[in-house]
Protein backbone atom coordinates (compact mmCIF):
# COMPACT_ATOMS: atom_id res chain seq x y z
CA UNK A 1 0.00 0.00 0.00
CA UNK A 2 1.17 3.50 -0.72
CA UNK A 3 1.18 6.00 2.14
CA UNK A 4 1.31 9.02 -0.10
CA UNK A 5 0.50 9.32 -3.75
CA UNK A 6 0.70 12.42 -5.90
CA UNK A 7 -1.12 12.16 -9.19
CA UNK A 8 -0.09 14.39 -12.08
CA UNK A 9 0.57 17.35 -9.84
CA UNK A 10 1.03 20.65 -11.64
CA UNK A 11 1.82 23.89 -9.87
CA UNK A 12 1.91 27.26 -11.54
CA UNK A 13 3.36 30.46 -10.16
CA UNK A 14 2.01 32.96 -12.62
CA UNK A 15 3.50 31.88 -15.91
CA UNK A 16 6.13 29.76 -14.27
CA UNK A 17 5.42 26.06 -14.15
CA UNK A 18 7.02 24.88 -10.91
CA UNK A 19 5.78 21.31 -11.35
CA UNK A 20 4.48 19.68 -14.49
CA UNK A 21 2.36 16.57 -14.09
CA UNK A 22 4.59 14.98 -11.48
CA UNK A 23 3.42 11.73 -9.92
CA UNK A 24 5.11 10.01 -7.05
CA UNK A 25 4.22 7.23 -4.68
CA UNK A 26 5.69 6.53 -1.28
CA UNK A 27 5.40 2.85 -0.43
CA UNK A 28 4.63 1.82 3.09
CA UNK A 29 7.72 1.36 5.21
CA UNK A 30 9.98 2.56 2.44
CA UNK A 31 12.33 5.48 2.10
CA UNK A 32 11.85 7.41 -1.09
CA UNK A 33 14.74 9.60 -2.18
CA UNK A 34 13.47 12.76 -3.81
CA UNK A 35 16.33 14.05 -5.89
CA UNK A 36 16.89 16.92 -8.23
CA UNK A 37 19.03 19.97 -8.82
CA UNK A 38 18.26 23.26 -7.12
CA UNK A 39 15.08 24.84 -8.38
CA UNK A 40 13.81 21.60 -9.88
CA UNK A 41 10.57 21.75 -7.92
CA UNK A 42 11.32 19.40 -5.02
CA UNK A 43 10.39 21.88 -2.32
CA UNK A 44 7.19 22.81 -4.15
CA UNK A 45 6.21 19.16 -4.31
CA UNK A 46 7.06 18.68 -0.64
CA UNK A 47 4.99 21.70 0.31
CA UNK A 48 2.06 20.38 -1.67
CA UNK A 49 2.30 17.05 0.13
CA UNK A 50 2.39 19.01 3.40
CA UNK A 51 -0.75 20.92 2.47
CA UNK A 52 1.17 24.19 2.65
CA UNK A 53 0.61 25.07 -0.98
CA UNK A 54 -1.92 23.58 -3.32
CA UNK A 55 -1.61 22.11 -6.79
CA UNK A 56 -3.27 23.77 -9.75
CA UNK A 57 -3.87 20.38 -11.25
CA UNK A 58 -3.60 16.86 -9.94
CA UNK A 59 -4.33 15.38 -6.56
CA UNK A 60 -2.53 14.12 -3.52
CA UNK A 61 -3.71 11.13 -1.52
CA UNK A 62 -2.73 10.30 2.02
CA UNK A 63 -3.34 6.68 2.98
CA UNK A 64 -5.81 6.47 0.13
CA UNK A 65 -7.80 9.54 1.16
CA UNK A 66 -7.65 12.88 -0.51
CA UNK A 67 -5.16 15.01 1.41
CA UNK A 68 -6.71 17.49 3.86
CA UNK A 69 -5.44 19.69 6.66
CA UNK A 70 -6.39 16.90 9.10
CA UNK A 71 -3.70 14.66 7.66
CA UNK A 72 -0.99 17.20 8.38
CA UNK A 73 -0.82 16.10 12.03
CA UNK A 74 0.21 12.66 10.77
CA UNK A 75 3.21 14.04 8.93
CA UNK A 76 6.59 14.86 10.39
CA UNK A 77 8.13 17.51 8.20
CA UNK A 78 11.67 18.78 8.55
CA UNK A 79 11.92 21.63 6.04
CA UNK A 80 15.14 22.63 4.37
CA UNK A 81 14.66 26.28 5.36
CA UNK A 82 14.36 25.76 9.06
CA UNK A 83 15.02 27.94 12.03
CA UNK A 84 13.83 28.62 15.53
CA UNK A 85 12.81 31.62 17.57
CA UNK A 86 16.18 32.86 18.71
CA UNK A 87 15.01 34.58 21.88
CA UNK A 88 12.82 31.76 23.11
CA UNK A 89 13.97 29.14 25.56
CA UNK A 90 14.78 25.74 24.12
CA UNK A 91 12.32 23.68 26.15
CA UNK A 92 9.53 26.20 25.89
CA UNK A 93 9.95 26.39 22.15
CA UNK A 94 9.93 22.64 21.74
CA UNK A 95 6.71 22.44 23.76
CA UNK A 96 5.16 25.19 21.62
CA UNK A 97 5.98 23.45 18.37
CA UNK A 98 4.71 20.16 19.76
CA UNK A 99 1.46 21.78 20.84
CA UNK A 100 0.99 23.16 17.35
CA UNK A 101 1.22 19.58 16.16
CA UNK A 102 -1.72 18.83 18.43
CA UNK A 103 0.17 17.30 21.36
CA UNK A 104 -0.84 17.95 24.93
CA UNK A 105 1.61 19.88 27.02
CA UNK A 106 2.36 17.16 29.56
CA UNK A 107 2.72 14.50 26.90
CA UNK A 108 5.06 16.77 24.98
CA UNK A 109 7.22 17.42 28.03
CA UNK A 110 7.57 13.73 28.86
CA UNK A 111 8.56 12.80 25.33
CA UNK A 112 10.84 15.79 24.94
CA UNK A 113 12.75 14.82 28.09
CA UNK A 114 13.36 11.39 26.61
CA UNK A 115 14.66 12.74 23.31
CA UNK A 116 16.69 15.50 24.93
CA UNK A 117 18.49 12.85 26.97
CA UNK A 118 18.99 10.67 23.96
CA UNK A 119 20.39 13.51 21.85
CA UNK A 120 22.48 14.81 24.74
CA UNK A 121 20.97 18.29 24.84
CA UNK A 122 19.06 17.93 28.13
CA UNK A 123 21.19 20.53 29.89
CA UNK A 124 20.10 23.15 27.35
CA UNK A 125 16.41 22.99 28.25
CA UNK A 126 16.33 26.41 29.90
CA UNK A 127 18.81 28.17 27.65
CA UNK A 128 17.88 30.48 24.85
CA UNK A 129 18.06 29.09 21.34
CA UNK A 130 20.58 31.71 20.24
CA UNK A 131 23.09 30.15 22.66
CA UNK A 132 22.88 26.81 20.89
CA UNK A 133 25.32 25.71 18.20
CA UNK A 134 23.90 25.08 14.77
CA UNK A 135 24.21 21.33 15.26
CA UNK A 136 22.24 21.49 18.49
CA UNK A 137 19.54 23.55 16.83
CA UNK A 138 19.34 20.93 14.10
CA UNK A 139 18.93 18.24 16.74
CA UNK A 140 16.14 20.21 18.35
CA UNK A 141 14.39 20.60 15.01
CA UNK A 142 14.71 16.90 14.33
CA UNK A 143 13.27 16.03 17.73
CA UNK A 144 10.33 18.34 17.17
CA UNK A 145 9.72 16.75 13.78
CA UNK A 146 9.46 13.21 15.10
CA UNK A 147 8.06 13.93 18.56
CA UNK A 148 4.39 13.47 17.74
CA UNK A 149 5.20 9.99 16.41
CA UNK A 150 3.77 10.19 12.93
CA UNK A 151 4.15 7.28 10.57
CA UNK A 152 5.16 9.41 7.63
CA UNK A 153 8.10 11.78 7.46
CA UNK A 154 9.53 14.25 5.03
CA UNK A 155 13.16 15.11 5.62
CA UNK A 156 14.49 17.88 3.43
CA UNK A 157 18.29 18.00 3.65
CA UNK A 158 18.27 16.62 7.20
CA UNK A 159 22.05 16.38 7.45
CA UNK A 160 23.02 19.95 6.64
CA UNK A 161 24.90 21.53 9.50
CA UNK A 162 25.79 18.26 11.22
CA UNK A 163 29.24 16.94 11.88
CA UNK A 164 29.97 13.37 10.70
CA UNK A 165 29.31 11.89 14.12
CA UNK A 166 25.90 13.48 14.31
CA UNK A 167 25.14 12.63 10.68
CA UNK A 168 25.74 9.04 11.60
CA UNK A 169 23.54 9.28 14.65
CA UNK A 170 20.78 10.84 12.59
CA UNK A 171 21.06 8.18 9.91
CA UNK A 172 20.64 5.56 12.55
CA UNK A 173 17.59 7.36 13.90
CA UNK A 174 16.08 7.50 10.43
CA UNK A 175 16.71 3.80 9.91
CA UNK A 176 15.23 3.17 13.35
CA UNK A 177 12.09 5.06 12.33
CA UNK A 178 11.86 2.89 9.26
CA UNK A 179 12.36 -0.23 11.32
CA UNK A 180 9.41 0.86 13.42
CA UNK A 181 7.26 1.02 10.35
CA UNK A 182 7.59 4.60 9.16
CA UNK A 183 7.56 5.73 5.55
CA UNK A 184 9.83 8.55 4.57
CA UNK A 185 10.47 11.02 1.79
CA UNK A 186 14.10 11.92 1.91
CA UNK A 187 15.27 14.85 -0.13
CA UNK A 188 18.95 15.59 -0.36
CA UNK A 189 21.85 16.46 -2.59
CA UNK A 190 24.07 14.06 -0.73
CA UNK A 191 24.02 11.06 -3.05
CA UNK A 192 26.09 8.89 -0.76
CA UNK A 193 23.39 9.02 1.88
CA UNK A 194 20.76 8.25 -0.76
CA UNK A 195 22.54 5.02 -1.53
CA UNK A 196 22.72 4.18 2.14
CA UNK A 197 19.15 4.94 3.06
CA UNK A 198 16.78 4.92 0.12
CA UNK A 199 14.70 2.09 -1.22
CA UNK A 200 13.28 4.06 -4.12
CA UNK A 201 14.25 7.23 -5.85
CA UNK A 202 12.54 9.88 -7.90
CA UNK A 203 14.59 12.34 -9.89
CA UNK A 204 13.01 15.67 -10.77
CA UNK A 205 14.55 18.15 -13.14
CA UNK A 206 13.06 21.33 -14.54
CA UNK A 207 9.66 20.69 -12.98
CA UNK A 208 9.34 17.21 -14.48
CA UNK A 209 9.97 13.76 -13.19
CA UNK A 210 12.74 12.25 -15.30
CA UNK A 211 13.52 9.08 -13.45
CA UNK A 212 11.99 6.83 -10.84
CA UNK A 213 12.24 3.35 -9.45
CA UNK A 214 13.89 1.15 -6.86
CA UNK A 215 17.45 2.10 -6.05
CA UNK A 216 18.92 -1.20 -7.36
CA UNK A 217 16.63 -1.15 -10.36
CA UNK A 218 17.75 2.33 -11.33
CA UNK A 219 21.37 1.47 -10.87
CA UNK A 220 20.83 -1.65 -12.93
CA UNK A 221 19.21 0.41 -15.62
CA UNK A 222 22.24 2.61 -15.93
CA UNK A 223 24.91 -0.02 -15.47
CA UNK A 224 27.79 0.14 -17.89
CA UNK A 225 28.62 -3.62 -17.78
CA UNK A 226 31.78 -2.70 -16.03
CA UNK A 227 33.69 -5.23 -13.98
CA UNK A 228 36.48 -4.76 -11.56
CA UNK A 229 39.05 -7.48 -11.52
CA UNK A 230 41.77 -7.72 -8.90
CA UNK A 231 44.52 -10.15 -9.81
CA UNK A 232 48.14 -11.06 -9.45
CA UNK A 233 50.31 -12.59 -12.07
CA UNK A 234 53.66 -14.38 -12.04
CA UNK A 235 54.83 -12.99 -15.31
CA UNK A 236 54.36 -9.79 -17.17
CA UNK A 237 51.23 -9.90 -19.28
CA UNK A 238 49.78 -7.50 -21.76
CA UNK A 239 46.15 -7.89 -20.73
CA UNK A 240 44.68 -6.19 -23.73
CA UNK A 241 46.37 -8.63 -26.08
CA UNK A 242 45.02 -11.58 -24.15
CA UNK A 243 41.37 -10.53 -24.22
CA UNK A 244 39.04 -10.76 -27.18
CA UNK A 245 37.65 -7.55 -28.67
CA UNK A 246 34.42 -7.73 -26.69
CA UNK A 247 36.27 -6.72 -23.55
CA UNK A 248 37.52 -3.23 -23.27
CA UNK A 249 39.99 -2.33 -20.57
CA UNK A 250 39.13 1.06 -19.10
CA UNK A 251 41.99 1.30 -16.64
CA UNK A 252 44.53 -0.78 -14.86
CA UNK A 253 46.46 0.06 -11.74
CA UNK A 254 49.35 -1.69 -10.06
CA UNK A 255 49.87 -1.66 -6.32
CA UNK A 256 52.73 -3.90 -5.16
CA UNK A 257 52.07 -6.29 -8.00
CA UNK A 258 48.37 -6.52 -7.19
CA UNK A 259 46.59 -5.26 -10.25
CA UNK A 260 43.13 -3.76 -10.39
CA UNK A 261 41.52 -3.55 -13.80
CA UNK A 262 38.24 -2.04 -14.89
CA UNK A 263 36.92 -3.95 -17.83
CA UNK A 264 33.88 -3.14 -19.83
CA UNK A 265 32.08 -6.13 -21.19
CA UNK A 266 30.19 -5.74 -24.45
CA UNK A 267 27.94 -8.26 -26.12
CA UNK A 268 29.03 -11.12 -23.89
CA UNK A 269 28.80 -11.90 -20.20
CA UNK A 270 30.87 -11.77 -17.06
CA UNK A 271 31.45 -15.49 -17.29
CA UNK A 272 33.15 -15.07 -20.63
CA UNK A 273 35.39 -12.45 -19.17
CA UNK A 274 36.37 -14.75 -16.34
CA UNK A 275 36.96 -17.60 -18.75
CA UNK A 276 39.21 -15.39 -20.81
CA UNK A 277 41.17 -14.24 -17.81
CA UNK A 278 41.54 -17.48 -15.85
CA UNK A 279 44.32 -19.12 -17.88
CA UNK A 280 46.55 -16.06 -17.51
CA UNK A 281 46.14 -14.53 -14.07
CA UNK A 282 45.20 -15.55 -10.57
CA UNK A 283 42.05 -13.68 -9.60
CA UNK A 284 41.69 -12.24 -6.12
CA UNK A 285 38.50 -10.31 -6.62
CA UNK A 286 35.80 -9.87 -9.18
CA UNK A 287 32.75 -7.68 -9.06
CA UNK A 288 30.42 -5.74 -11.27
CA UNK A 289 30.67 -2.00 -10.89
CA UNK A 290 27.33 -0.20 -10.78
CA UNK A 291 27.18 3.51 -11.43
CA UNK A 292 26.88 5.62 -8.29
CA UNK A 293 23.73 7.68 -7.74
CA UNK A 294 25.99 10.66 -8.09
CA UNK A 295 26.95 9.65 -11.61
CA UNK A 296 23.39 8.83 -12.56
CA UNK A 297 22.20 12.17 -11.18
CA UNK A 298 24.78 14.16 -13.10
CA UNK A 299 24.38 12.28 -16.34
CA UNK A 300 20.59 12.44 -16.29
CA UNK A 301 20.38 16.10 -15.37
CA UNK A 302 23.04 17.06 -17.89
CA UNK A 303 21.31 15.12 -20.59
CA UNK A 304 18.42 17.55 -20.30
CA UNK A 305 20.61 20.57 -20.06
CA UNK A 306 23.13 20.55 -22.95
CA UNK A 307 24.73 23.74 -21.68
CA UNK A 308 26.44 21.77 -18.92
CA UNK A 309 28.13 19.30 -21.21
Amino acid sequence: MNIVEAHDVTKLYGDFRALNKVSIAVKENNILGLLGPNGAGKTTLIRIINHITFPDEGEVFFKGEKLTQEHVAQIGYLPEERGLYRKMKVGEQAIYLAQLKGMLRQDAITKLKYWFEKFEIASWWNRKVEELSKGMQQKLQFIVTILHQPKFFIFDEPFSGFDPINVNMLKNEILELKKNGASIIFSTHNMASVEELCDDIVLINKSEKILEGGLREVKNQFKQHMFEVVFTTSHEVELSSLLPEDFHIESITDADSVFTALIKVEHTSANDLLAALLPHVSIQGFQEIFPSMNEIFISQVNKMNPMNN
Binding site: Q69, P79, E81, R82, G83, Y85, L97, L100, K101
Partner: peptide, 18 residues
Protein backbone atom coordinates in the same frame (compact mmCIF):
# COMPACT_ATOMS: atom_id res chain seq x y z
CA UNK B 1 9.42 39.41 9.65
CA UNK B 2 11.23 37.79 12.57
CA UNK B 3 9.57 34.46 11.85
CA UNK B 4 10.49 34.74 8.23
CA UNK B 5 14.12 35.69 8.74
CA UNK B 6 14.44 33.07 11.49
CA UNK B 7 13.29 30.50 8.95
CA UNK B 8 10.92 29.05 11.52
CA UNK B 9 7.86 29.89 9.52
CA UNK B 10 7.90 26.77 7.37
CA UNK B 11 8.11 24.58 10.46
CA UNK B 12 5.04 26.32 11.81
CA UNK B 13 3.00 26.30 8.61
CA UNK B 14 3.60 22.59 8.39
CA UNK B 15 1.38 22.35 11.48
CA UNK B 16 -1.03 25.24 11.04
CA UNK B 17 -2.43 27.11 8.10
CA UNK B 18 -0.68 30.37 7.25
Amino acid sequence: LEEKTNRIVEIIVSSVKP
